[in-house]
Write a protein that binds this DNA or RNA. Structure first.
Lengths: 199, 199
DNA sequence: GGCTAAGGTATCGCCTCGATATATATGCGC
DNA sequence: GCGCATATATATCGAGGCGATACCTTAGCC
């Protein structure tokens, strides 16, 4: 599954321009499948090439044409196939987790500051999702409700974990400074690269 | 922060080859900052170019040279700066969340199957992290303990959410079929020019 | 008059990813 | 001894994604 598939999915719910799609990717999809212009416009071009969407240029007064895309029957089928082929693995990437892993290379005040920032960012994220939900009014579609709830549950769980485990990082009893500088031996048998000496 | 920074960080804890680094990326870092050969080897080459690491080729009997990398003082400084510059935002990407968002395009049995798969995958993930933790023995470094615990807490929270909210998706009372082409009408006032008369 | 925001299109270069190629050595079952 | 899988180890390629930027107009505000 890639951005092309996501575009097809969004177009299943109604015609849209690249700009419209971007707005979706920036609101509802932001927390589990974000995409920018650099992905969306090329995707639409390829999809149009493959006949999975049709493009209609709608002239506007004194503005460049609005290019509205509509999914075709072939596009719908491709989408449903891709959807069923989805992988259950998710991908997470977090710079702050890297920072926590290497916490003993940070000044304690810096670390404190980061932990505070982190929880702030997470609660901002929850607030953002709440706002999106409210904008839907009383009738949030079930899929939307599910993914928004998922995002909120996740951010909340992260915040709780950080709060409850910050003590793991803070006591300045670092063991890393005990590490030895493994000399590189030019002997052919010396393969004792010490990746283990962090203990 | 990019893979280059991560490589520097790992090399702070001891010399290593590209292969060694890959193993770390595949175990401890898998759940929050994964990387493959296609990222690691080019990163090491660039770092060596910039003088942030030194490369020592260690000849081996009847095997290609083992290229062991060691961080330099400049590398250490660059790493600590990058670490302090980390962004609190995380990135998640989940195909299954996409599938749940578009759940009404799936057969109910398929959906059921996916929800089951999902929880299986998540608990496999927790088991994997438990295993890694056990391999460290009694003295898991605090940073490692923190990130492994984070991963487990997250996967557990996901599993709970999925379990508790599957009912949101299952009752076949889809509202999507009621959809109107509201997007075009709401995003532009003047373009009542319907698409049909230009198809 | 100048500033910012919003509506729009689109591309560029860097980075990342997954698969693949190329060797050798070890171990395991048959 | 044969075939096979696994581990050690290097590295590259093409496809795809990402962030920033460019270009253009209108509207509103100070």
């Amino acid at each position: 599954m890639d951005i092309k598939t996501l575009c097809l999915g969004l177009l299943c719910d109604g015609d849209a321009s690249g700009y419209d799609l971007k707005k979706q990717f920036e609101s509802t999809f932001k927390h589990f499948y974000p995409a920018g212009y650099g992905s969306i416009y090329p995707s639409l071009a390829v999809l149009a090439d493959q006949g999975l969407v049709q493009c209609h240029a709608m002239p506007q007064d004194k503005k460049p044409d609005r290019k509205v895309y509509r999914i075709t029957e072939a596009g719908r089928q491709v989408f449903e196939t891709s959807l069923a082929d989805a992988s259950p693995e998710h991908k997470l990437r977090s710079e702050y987790l890297v920072a926590m892993y290497f916490a003993d290379y940070l000044e304690p005040e810096q670390l404190e500051q980061m932990l505070t920032n982190w929880n702030q960012t997470l609660s901002d994220g929850v607030a953002r999702l709440d706002l999106i939900e409210q904008e839907f009014g009383p009738d949030v579609p079930p899929g939307t409700r599910f993914v928004l709830g998922f995002g909120k549950a996740l951010a909340t769980a992260m915040a709780s974990y950080v709060e409850e485990n910050r003590s793991l990082l803070l006591p300045a009893t670092s063991t890393r400074n005990k590490r030895v500088d493994a000399r590189i031996e030019s002997s052919s048998t010396a393969q004792t690269t010490n990746l283990e000496n962090r203990v």
